[in-house]
Design a protein around this nucleic acid. Sequence first.
DNA 1: GAGTTATAATTCGACATCGAAAGATTAGAT
DNA 2: ATCTAATCTTTCGATGTCGAATTATAACTC
Lengths: 150, 150
Amino acid sequence: MSTPHKVSTEQARALNAYVRLMRAVEFVTRRISPHLATHGLTWSQFEVLEALNQFGSLCQNTVAEKILKSPANITTVIDNLEKQKLVRRERSAEDRRFVTVHLTEEGRRLIHEACPRHIAAIVEEMKILSKSEQEELSRLCRKLELKEGK
Amino acid sequence: MSTPHKVSTEQARALNAYVRLMRAVEFVTRRISPHLATHGLTWSQFEVLEALNQFGSLCQNTVAEKILKSPANITTVIDNLEKQKLVRRERSAEDRRFVTVHLTEEGRRLIHEACPRHIAAIVEEMKILSKSEQEELSRLCRKLELKEGK
DNA sequence: GAGTTATAATTCGACATCGAAAGATTAGAT
DNA sequence: ATCTAATCTTTCGATGTCGAATTATAACTC
């Protein structure tokens, strides 16, 4: 984004930080992703399984919140996970609008196998940063995420 | 990614930094994106137009490198831009394997209109961080991006 | 209890994304 | 000159992504 438009020094600094941020995520993601492919999982599928493993069975709306995706999207991801028999849908008895999603035994086995490797891959990526650098990165990113001043 | 798996303190710190990083990008992107929609552009379409505006006409392979996407993907994005008459394809005369992509007048006009707003939106997001924080973020992200030690 | 409003999930259409395979073209080797 | 390898683009199939409209259900109001 270092554009031909005239920008002040301050704007250039902000833009540079932004571009670096985007590129870092792009490259880190690219290096981590292959680990998931070996388990036959896409990124979103992994995130859904992980959320179910961590929080227990959830309704689809909650899954969407956890992995920061739209409900419409969750439907298709769950569809594909169900085809692979990694999760099971269950229409709630009390309120029939809700669909609760459960891990199957198969799904639980897979995520228990994939998760440690995934964590290891992430740690491997981040350890290029020192302890204090990791903490500083967390702090800065949290500020960007919240940005309530907006 | 704070998982139920046992992780050491060091792993937890690395994971936390990673999750913060991902979420920050997710939220910042979400807040910036609406600006593009007002110009009828998707994220990728904008990136392609911007690359052409910045570097001049490029062949598709180069566009793919600039915006960090696969060549297969570029084909469809350019297809959609061409439908809107924002870019023009031209088979290279010297080496007919290459397709050079040019901005049309329409495309140039649009990107000149959209770019400043986009930059403003980014600056608005990043200015929650101080000068030195922006610089530190750039430095940390650059380290993550390169990570040649791998 | 009938009508309104709210919420959960799905469907639909458009676009993005990638890997793999295919097609076209060039460059290099012999 | 011909064969081979490399390179650029496209096509194909699968998945993901979203907003908007739709369906099903529940809760609320009067």
